[in-house]
Design a protein around this nucleic acid. Structure first.
Lengths: 240, 240
DNA sequence: CGGATCTTTGAAGATGCTCAAATAGCGTGG
DNA sequence: CCACGCTATTTGAGCATCTTCAAAGATCCG
């Protein structure tokens, strides 16, 4: 067991409104405290799990920021998502008891390790948890539908706009600014997620800056015109 | 209730090796017979469910072929998947108790209606079913990762090759030919799924025919060079 | 048979990619 | 503290791929 592991509880976690315990009663919450075996720290650049690794647990992110990515032998590489505090990671491993992607910490991170057999066990008794687990998986499916829409039908500007708005909205739900954010990933990682080359990402940022829609200083982004970005995402016809 | 609905049972369904009952013991299977409330027929072109509709049930496809697609108000449209016999459809609806996409029958179809509260109820008692439901959802997540890889990193030929190989592989698992298939969808629907325009799909088919990799007569496709297609998907570097 | 839909093919154009080079920031160690 | 090397980012120019627009041909189904 990881030496950095420490015993913890969901019931007094400040992320409980976003994370696994969402919507559970206090009574149910106590049952959930058996769920998180340990916490685990992951240093920036390290992997939480990798493709091919045996699946044992889901992970709730307590702090830090992850990317999940698929790498094939032939050199293709696809970032399939970016995950932040309160989000659950590792769902890909359930189907074949093996993870099928890598989860890489983009900054020093800490996760709650939730052994999946424990989750299933408690789910059988705590209906609210069962329901919540189903919702978490369904949410991931719906999120990926959205990414497919983005990758399948949007042009570069629309993709980047959608990406920024999504990030800032999730950060806002966690108490951060609605208009400012610090990107934890490189242009290349953004590009991989959006199906674009890093140069295209960079150029598109520059274009947004020229048009006064955002300010960009390295990885610090300030959104000046949320509606403008929103319009890009929603009105494809207008923007040629 | 739909007048075409008729009472049925999983335990003697010939799809049980592919569908919901997969891997359950005979004893558990009997419990599952309570699961499928009714069957429902869906005519070609009709919807099984639509975006915004209340979510109540998952559906197991008994016969026929579906597409699921996202349509936004601004005219974007994305086919998120094609589903065939034995596959489960409707998982998108769990998270918000509303479906977020349309499921359209591409040929006359019949589905088993499985009320989701029933699924959850039986899942609490039949561990194998609980586990199986989790696997089904995880499988969908992993499938979508694959589509993201396709949309994010493949060129037109690679996408179409991957698409054909995937279809024929799934059909083969259902007892059909490894090399021949009938497309149930239009070029436009294929294009939407693959993030391409219908003309590009058509041209790419023509190219495959020229190269002797497939025979195409309308929607009838015969694959002549499976390895060639596989190489396209796996060796991006070779194919420029 | 005839209209509607689907498919194919061509030609021109746009978007994003590749290759290349310059610049900026970051972290380490002298 | 500064220099250095490394990585990340920006920007330009030419190019490939895919899209758009257009028209003709095929197929399906009432």
């Amino acid at each position: 067991m990881n030496p950095q592991a420490i015993k913890v509880a969901c019931s007094n976690c400040n992320l409980r409104e976003l994370c696994m315990p969402m919507g559970l009663t206090d009574q149910d919450l106590n049952r959930l405290d058996d769920l998180v075996a340990v916490r685990r720290k992951v240093k920036r650049g390290d992997t939480l799990f990798t493709n091919g690794e045996n699946f044992t647990s889901l992970y709730a992110i307590r702090t830090g920021f992850f990317k999940t990515c698929l790498a094939t032998e032939d050199g293709r590489d696809q970032v399939t998502g970016f995950q932040m505090a309160g989000e659950i990671i590792g769902l890909d491993g359930i189907v074949n008891d093996q993870h099928t992607c890598d989860a890489v910490a983009l900054e020093d991170a800490e996760v709650c390790v939730m052994p999946f057999d424990r989750i299933e066990e408690i789910s059988r008794e705590v209906t609210a948890l069962q329901h919540h687990v189903h919702k978490i998986m369904s949410r991931e499916i719906v999120r990926e539908h959205g990414v497919m829409l983005l990758l399948g039908s949007m042009r570069a500007e629309e993709r980047l706009a959608a990406f920024l708005l999504n990030l800032v909205q999730r950060l806002h739900a966690r108490g951060f600014s609605q208009s400012e954010l610090v990107l934890r990933m490189t242009r290349e990682e953004i590009g991989s997620y959006l199906g674009l080359k890093l140069e295209t990402v960079s150029r598109t940022f520059s274009k947004f800056v020229e048009e006064g829609m955002v300010e960009v200083k390295q990885r610090h982004v300030r959104i000046l015109d949320t509606e403008g970005l929103q319009r890009l995402v929603n009105n494809p016809a207008h923007c040629h």
